[in-house]
């Protein structure tokens, strides 16, 4: 569904992605794990049209080479690191902005209900300014807002960042639920343990390069990964 070939990204003199290639299959949860500064966010920002890159990104047989708003229109939704909810607007306005490009009033209403079922907390707070939500609620809002664009694939950038362990579990459960709704998921995480537990396949990104790929199970059982990312001593 999404194929990336030999992607290079530079920030001035910094070579942040050094020839990354990967593919995402329809309907799967693919996770990319990597530590701070590995280039995970850079990869997602390239897909969603914010960065200039060398190499190619192909989505549904089409080369992606558009501005961010056109990329959303093609069914790609990027839930960014740090959530970036519109703090000055209500929860419901945030969700409706997620549906900005849609004109099917009925579909939007149905999806709004779906999001509220998935995140009952958001329904309780629909009229509240989203800046007053807790971190976990903001993450839910960011994901709900992403769903409102009715995407085919969701790019999730560290959804568990800064959340209490119990909430982390909730967020990962919800990601599994979202996949069951027929969405494809590209999940970028530092919390390798959790990410690998829900993913089908995984890539390991280190200093701008993919150093390993395989089924999530295999990666989770790989001794060097265990040591580096899962905190297990050899």
């Amino acid at each position: 569904m999404l194929t990336i070939n030999n992607l290079h990204v530079y920030y001035g003199g910094i070579h942040a992605l050094k020839g990354v290639s990967l593919n995402v299959n329809k309907g799967e949860i693919l996770t990319i794990i990597g530590s701070n500064g590995a280039g995970k966010s850079t990869l997602l920002n390239s897909i969603s049209g914010f960065l200039k890159y060398k190499g190619e990104i192909i989505y549904k047989d089409q080369k992606l080479n558009f501005s961010p708003n056109k990329i959303v229109q093609m069914g790609i939704c990027h839930v960014p690191e740090g959530r970036l909810v519109f703090a000055n607007l209500t929860v419901e306005d945030n969700l409706l902005l997620g549906a900005y490009l849609r004109n099917d009033k009925k579909g939007i209403k149905e999806d709004l209900e779906k999001v509220y079922t998935l995140f009952p907390r958001l329904k309780e707070r629909q009229k509240q300014l989203s800046g007053t939500l807790s971190g976990g609620e903001q993450q839910m809002l960011a994901m709900g807002r992403g769903l409102m664009s009715s995407p085919d694939i969701m790019l999730l950038d560290e959804p568990s960042l800064g959340l209490a362990p119990l909430l982390v579990q909730t967020v990962f459960d919800i990601i599994t639920d979202i996949r069951k709704m027929g969405k494809t998921i590209l999940l970028v995480e530092q919390n390798a343990f959790k990410a690998l537990s829900i993913a089908d396949r995984a890539y390991v990104l280190e200093q701008g390069k993919i150093i390993m790929e395989g089924s999530a199970k295999d990666i989770a059982n790989n001794p060097s990964i265990k040591e580096a990312y899962l905190g297990v001593k050899k």
């Binding site: 914010f50 959303v72 229109q73 970036l84 607007l89 902005l97 900005y100 490009l101 664009s149």
Partner: peptide, 19 residues
């Protein structure tokens, strides 16, 4: 609403498909 969103965060509004 899109103007308000953009005034709050231009990147996030582009992610909503706002031009």
């Amino acid at each position: 609403k899109a103007i308000q969103a953009t005034s709050y965060n231009i990147k996030a509004s582009a992610l909503m498909g706002i031009n």
